[in-house]
Design a protein around this nucleic acid. Sequence first.
DNA 1: ATCTAAATGAAAACGTTTTTCAATTAGCAA
DNA 2: TTGCTAATTGAAAAACGTTTTCATTTAGAT
Lengths: 151, 151
Amino acid sequence: MIYSDKTTEQELRRGGYKLTTQRRAIIGTIAGTQEHLTPAAIYERVHRKHPSIGLVTVYRTIDILAELGLICETHAGGSCRSYLMRRPSGHHHHLICSDCGRVVDFTDCDLEKLERRLAKETNFKINGHLLEFLGQCRECSRKQKEQSRLC
Amino acid sequence: MIYSDKTTEQELRRGGYKLTTQRRAIIGTIAGTQEHLTPAAIYERVHRKHPSIGLVTVYRTIDILAELGLICETHAGGSCRSYLMRRPSGHHHHLICSDCGRVVDFTDCDLEKLERRLAKETNFKINGHLLEFLGQCRECSRKQKEQSRLC
DNA sequence: ATCTAAATGAAAACGTTTTTCAATTAGCAA
DNA sequence: TTGCTAATTGAAAAACGTTTTCATTTAGAT
Ligand SMILES: [Mn+2]
Ligand SMILES: [Mn+2]
Ligand SMILES: [Zn+2]
Ligand SMILES: [Zn+2]
């Protein structure tokens, strides 16, 4: 079990939630990969090791982890909602590889100036934003280049 | 029927699609509101005027309009996928009121510098981004202020 | 060790989206 | 204008994803 698991489990307790075998397994699964996983993908992996854990518990645990801000939600890539462990603790965003799903976090989105201008122009009271970059990671563009060379 | 309908219908034809009563009605509905509508909401409104039009046709038409870039998809506000007529024709983003759903477009997101820096730092080949601001529009914050005064 | 509120799994309900297929229709050609 | 044909449609069913319900189990406090 790696560090982030422990931290996450402590936060769960601090949030007033019980620390169950199921929750440990789910946290371990999300923390154990770099990819972002859909609820179904989390379930599939958890279920492999612990066949008795149900999909419902995965959904319920996801809700809690999201509420506590311990996991990040992404939207890109067609299927709605997928999750990954929150690595930078504060406000941050994602750069996602459309091919393999790899996610890179970045923190300095620098949108304050734009936000201030929009607020002034539109009279909106802005309280949040969603920013994601989509692209192709180094490994995937390398692979693609090799494949196109074979033609 | 307002201007944007005509344009949209012409684009449909240019895309090789037939111009049916159903498609006209769906386009008219999306173009006739400022809000972003879920497929179900589009269906409900279309269905009021044309009870014979089915939900399936709404989905199929949405797919085509999105493929042709004639409608915008938004993600914010819990429910996945909602659509509104594309107003600025090119690359642009949305500022969404969390209370009433009003959508304001803006075009100058100014993310090129950030994009270039991220590309260099992560070796990603970036080919797109998703940016949405969430907030409260003027009317909604006004309403809220009035209500809190009554307490 | 005992107790209790919280958590769980199975099943059913629910809402959304897709697939299938026979009937209809838009747009073109005669 | 009139047929022809491929595209489009609606109804029904299937396929998904997510939530609710409820009886049973369990974590954590006493
Ligand atoms: Mn993250
Ligand atoms: Mn738009
Ligand atoms: Zn990749
Ligand atoms: Zn509003």
